[in-house]
Design a protein around this nucleic acid. Structure first.
Lengths: 300, 300
DNA sequence: GAATTTGATTTTAATTATAAAAAACAATAT
DNA sequence: ATATTGTTTTTTATAATTAAAATCAAATTC
């Protein structure tokens, strides 16, 4: 079979439901009407009707589709399982790379990975082609892919790029009027930082989430598809690194909270120079952390 | 046939050349040696040898491969035509979109486009998956792709992103020491601008190239794979728009030359504030030009 | 007779099957 | 021992296949 007949199965089951709500002996609606109702092409409707006819559930003569008997549970077809989405695949792939410290230069083969992640090979190919645009992987001369990222160089460049984008976000943020919702959000997130600072001994694990939330708030003021796309990749990689690098976590997080607070206060004070300085300081710490964690892992 | 046998054909022809340079009755080198020499797997060498044997050009017994007679022209296989590269495809695609003003929202179908551009469908699929990361196209719910970019909104966002990246480049550039080659390049390109300014009446077409060269020089100081990738797409789109938008070309280019010169002078004077102002002014003009040209085309 | 419905055909694109190429392994000859 | 060849396995890129959608024309109903 070339394609999965998911759509057919779902449509057939929907048709059983429709039959279930009708009296025996009555006529089913026209093919086009059914197709519209189920948001499916007429071809599918017709094959489903054909099956209903051969199952003796309806009698189909020309445009007369008479319900012969009510469908029962045994008539239903196994519903299709949902294939993992693009984002799910992204998550799985990065998790695999970071958890197992897959070294830069590793050959990736689509067949094996597609089995591993339980996605069609086709799908994975597309995903890798997308990553190639960000320089995370490259095509090998004759077929296959090679993992490029996750070297120290990569971390430096990623961090520098992040700095460029976030400084830009900070500058834009400070031009926003008092009434803009971002100010309220910043004030709220400031509270959350203070709360976490108090309980840091027991709750230091919660910082990863708060960190992501804070950066998202800052970046949310930039309405630009390129920036948004780039930040998606950046936050993904930083986030996963935090997840797997557990060295001196409490200490790191404590320091990061202080840096965040200084940064937030500077922005709330509408002080551009101080905000930029605070942002640079924090992002520089982040960069060092990412670098250290990569060094620790890749020196095999 | 599942794959093209390009590699086999090329290898077979190379083998004919090797036979041509040998005396009749002598032995061909070992399979591994041939494979190494032709940068091809042994499997290919063996199938090629098999064909040479069946063509009665060599006698192949075990590890004895004796040349029976010299190959002639008629023995050569049609050499494979080179498939267009990724960059060539990129160029062709953007040229098609801009030349024919393909409107945003158009459904793209891989089969048709792959015929049009004479590339394997596979290849095009990958290319589109890459563009999707930049928000230029998106996957349609059930198969196929949709063109998204090239709306006014897109132009604004692209220009804003460009501004962020180039301002960053300017800031980095001004920190570079006197000895850095970029200063010489800037001085040279300043001369080129002056020369073009003198002959602008007759040579205004040459500005497009000079513009690209200038921006490349400025951006070249940023050694960052993300920035480089992003700038590739940006310059591509701006470049192609300049190519197809011919309204008031001379006037536009004259003005742009003056803006470039002010910008270059500011940088040569190591004046950051003035450089930033000049960059912003020029990029803002560029943005307007891009917007106008899009409006002119898309209001169908 | 106009609108709707159906029958048949064409087109499109996702997936599978498969040939080409590479790699791995085992056997043999030098 | 080493180099070379024979064989098998694995992998990848493309062609073939098929589900689904779209199109078109004929037929039926009101």
């Amino acid at each position: 079979m070339a394609r999965t007949d998911d759509r057919f199965r779902n449509a057939y089951n929907a048709l059983l439901d429709i039959c279930g709500g009708m009296e025996i002996g009555t006529q089913l609606p026209a093919e086009t009407a059914l197709a519209d109702r189920m948001d499916v092409s007429r071809t599918i409707v017709r094959t489903a009707l054909q099956k209903l006819d051969s199952e003796q559930l309806i009698r189909w003569e020309g445009r007369r589709k008479t319900l012969v008997r009510k469908p029962e549970k045994c008539h239903r077809l196994e519903p299709a399982e949902t294939p993992p989405s693009g984002e799910e695949l992204e998550r799985q792939f990065l998790e695999w790379v970071l958890r197992f410290d897959v070294p830069a230069g590793t050959s990736l083969n689509v067949a094996q990975l597609s089995r591993q992640f339980a996605v069609p090979a086709h799908n994975l190919q597309e995903f890798l082609a997308g990553l190639a645009r960000f320089g995370l992987v490259e095509r090998r001369p004759r077929g296959g892919w090679r993992l490029l990222g996750f070297t120290a160089e990569f971390a430096v460049e990623l961090s520098d790029f992040r700095l460029v984008l976030e400084l830009n976000a900070v500058r834009q943020l400070l031009t926003l009027p008092e009434s803009h919702p971002v100010w309220k959000k910043l004030a709220d997130i400031r509270q959350e930082h203070e709360a976490l600072r108090k309980d840091i001994q027991s709750r230091y694990h919660d910082f990863s989430k708060l960190d992501e939330k804070f950066h998202t708030v800052v970046n949310s003021v930039v309405k630009n598809r390129f920036v948004v796309e780039a930040q998606k990749v950046i936050s993904l990689i930083f986030h996963y690194h935090y997840m797997w690098d557990k060295t001196r976590e409490q200490e790191r997080n404590s320091a990061a909270i202080e840096e965040h607070l200084e940064w937030i206060d500077a922005m709330l004070a509408r002080d551009l120079a101080r905000s930029e300085a605070a942002a640079m300081k924090h992002l520089s710490t982040s960069k060092d952390t990412l670098l250290t964690s990569l060094r620790g892992h890749n020196l095999v």
